[in-house]
Simulated assay, not measured.
Amino acid sequence: MTAAPEQRPAASAARAGDTAWRRSWAAALDRVELDVDAAERLLGALHAGAAAAEAVVPPVWAPPALTGPVPDEHAERARLLLQRQLDVSEQLARALVHTRTQVAALRKLERAEPQPVFVDRAL
């Protein structure tokens, strides 16, 4: 049995909306993946000894305006990206703690009283 002609445009519009929704999620996941790639490259460059000024810092992230849950066909990719984001966040946190420890140690050295190199005394 086929739908009445007046119902076909509505069904077609629903499918088009569904397709656009799926494409929007795919595009959002693409952007997240590029951001995670950039963060991983930044960490790699910094660990390899690149100066912070030489490292390319990704732009500020803005969340996409998406409605509804992640489509089923993108769920596994979203889970993998989330895990990569969590891994990068953990690495960044460790790097921050390490940097703060180094800065604190350097500040202690800077405040240390200069030690005399020789003693000047009359004979």
Rank of each mutant, 00 (worst) to 15 (best):
M1Q: 07
M1D: 14
T2A: 14
A3E: 14
A4E: 13
A4M: 07
P5C: 02
P5S: 08
P9Q: 08
S12H: 10
S12P: 00
A13N: 08
A14S: 05
A16Q: 15
A16E: 12
G17R: 15
A20W: 03
R22W: 03
R22N: 13
R22H: 12
S24C: 00
W25Q: 03
W25K: 04
A27F: 06
A27K: 13
A28R: 05
A28I: 02
L29D: 06
L29Q: 10
L29W: 07
V32F: 10
V32R: 15
E33V: 01
L34N: 10
V36C: 10
D37Q: 11
D37C: 01
D37M: 06
E40N: 06
E40H: 04
L43D: 06
G44Q: 00
G44T: 03
A45W: 10
A45H: 11
L46F: 00
H47K: 14
H47R: 15
A48V: 08
A48D: 09
G49P: 02
A51K: 12
E54W: 08
A55E: 01
V56E: 14
V57K: 11
V57R: 15
P59M: 01
P59C: 01
P59Q: 02
V60Y: 05
A62V: 15
P64D: 02
P64A: 06
A65N: 08
L66T: 02
T67P: 00
T67I: 01
T67Y: 05
G68W: 02
G68F: 03
V70Y: 03
P71C: 01
D72Q: 12
D72E: 13
E73K: 07
A75K: 14
A75V: 04
A75S: 09
A78T: 04
A78K: 13
R79L: 09
R79N: 10
L82T: 14
Q83E: 15
Q83P: 00
Q85I: 03
Q85R: 14
D87Y: 09
D87A: 15
V88E: 07
V88Y: 05
Q91M: 06
L92I: 04
A93M: 05
L96T: 14
L96E: 13
T99N: 08
T99I: 07
R100S: 04
T101D: 10
T101F: 08
V103F: 06
V103Q: 11
V103Y: 01
A104G: 02
A105I: 05
K108C: 03
L109Q: 12
E110K: 10
A112C: 03
A112K: 11
E113L: 10
E113R: 14
P114V: 06
Q115T: 14
P116V: 07
V119S: 09
V119D: 15
V119C: 06
